[in-house]
């Protein structure tokens, strides 16, 4: 379906210097690709391997000689002769500040690696003052663009608010949202083309929102969960995961992940079943799969989880006849 045409053109290679080491990467590769080739582990949040880089979070910035400002490694193409410093004082400073600014305004408790990076960069999100109390549900959905009340300086503003639970399949916990745009891009033109959500408002008051902040059940959402697939912080999560976490029973060390093929239509989507205690608790799809690119539809994403429950219930009722 997506096999590319081999045009027979040789890929040109470019040499870039990363922290003093010369790395050769194919033309078109990003600085981040080059850093990975050099064995470096650059933190990323808004970068998604199935999405066009938005370079919004700026946690992956590096210093490129000749550039006035720091450069987002996830989106900048490596160019011949480019000299990159990933660990300079300037680069580390901005990364640390990005982590602190996010950490002070967003609940990063379910963001993979956030704690590790905070420690690596010596980030202290608490130094902006005590966190402001979470606002009431919906309060951040009706802010007046371009107008905000003057802060009192006593607390650090956050985006924290109660989770939005308006359907049985997935939960939107926007107190954990870093506004990376990945869900919007996955729902929009890059993959799903349902456009159920967009970024609304502006600046710190911007939110991920349906039109007029309508409940998901009244929106264009088709519950493909492709937004959940790309969410880097756990702001979007399966209801099963959300409930298990609430109950304190979510335990990734007890989970297995097995990739198989969806049981529904003939497209052959690869589904990775995350199983805890012989229950499917989450379904993802491999991002490098040529059929799905990490995407599924409602049936593959959620229909399988419940099929198992339904089957158990049905089997429980029926006598075995074998």
């Amino acid at each position: 379906m997506t096999q590319s045409v081999d045009l027979g053109l040789p890929t040109r290679l470019v040499d870039v210097t990363i922290d003093g080491e010369t790395v050769r990467v194919p033309e078109g590769a990003t600085v981040l690709d080059a850093c990975e080739a050099a064995g470096l582990d650059i933190p990323t949040l808004c970068y998604g391997d199935t999405l066009t880089p938005k370079n919004a979070c700026r946690v992956c910035v590096v210093e490129v000689e000749g550039s006035r400002t720091l450069v987002p490694s996830c989106s900048r193409q490596a160019a011949e002769g480019m000299v990159v410093h990933t660990d300079s004082e300037r680069a580390r400073h901005s990364r640390k500040l990005v982590l602190e600014l996010l950490g002070s305004s967003v609940d990063l408790s379910t963001t993979p690696r956030a704690d590790e990076w905070m420690a690596d960069y010596g980030a202290d999100p608490d130094r902006f003052g005590p966190r402001a109390e979470p606002v009431q549900a919906g309060a951040r959905d009706v802010l007046h663009t371009g107008h905000h009340g003057e802060p009192d300086g006593a607390t650090a503003a956050t985006v924290e608010q109660p989770p939005k639970v308006d359907n049985d399949l997935y939960v939107r916990d926007y107190g954990k949202c870093i506004l990376c745009y990945k869900c919007v891009d996955a729902c929009g033109e890059q993959w799903q083309n349902s456009f159920a959500i967009g970024v609304a408002g502006r600046g710190f008051d911007a939110t991920i929102s349906t039109e007029f902040a309508a409940p998901l059940t009244d929106s264009a959402c088709v519950y493909c969960g492709n937004c959940v697939e790309v969410c880097p912080t756990g702001a979007l999560s399966f209801k099963t995961e959300f409930d298990l976490r609430e109950a304190g029973e979510w335990d990734e060390s007890r989970q297995t992940e097995t990739t198989t093929i969806c049981a529904f239509c003939g497209v052959g989507c690869n589904v990775s079943l995350h199983v805890q205690d012989n229950e499917i608790v989450k379904v993802t799809s491999p991002h490098d799969n040529p059929v799905t690119h990490g995407n599924l539809c409602i049936k593959g994403r959620f229909g399988l989880t419940h099929v198992q429950v339904a089957r158990k219930e049905r089997r429980g009722r029926e006598p075995r006849e074998d």
Binding site: M1, T256, T258, T259, T260, I261, C262, A263, C265, G266, V267, G268, N270, L273, V275, N278, I280, V291, L304, V307, Q308, R311
Partner: peptide
């Protein structure tokens, strides 16, 4: 369930033969 409780292959609409695996 052939798609999650057994091992084997299936073929999709574009004639792609893929592995199904036992997850449960």
């Amino acid at each position: 369930a052939a798609w999650s409780e057994s091992e084997g292959t299936v073929t999709n609409s574009e004639r792609r033969v893929q592995r199904v695996r036992k997850a449960l």
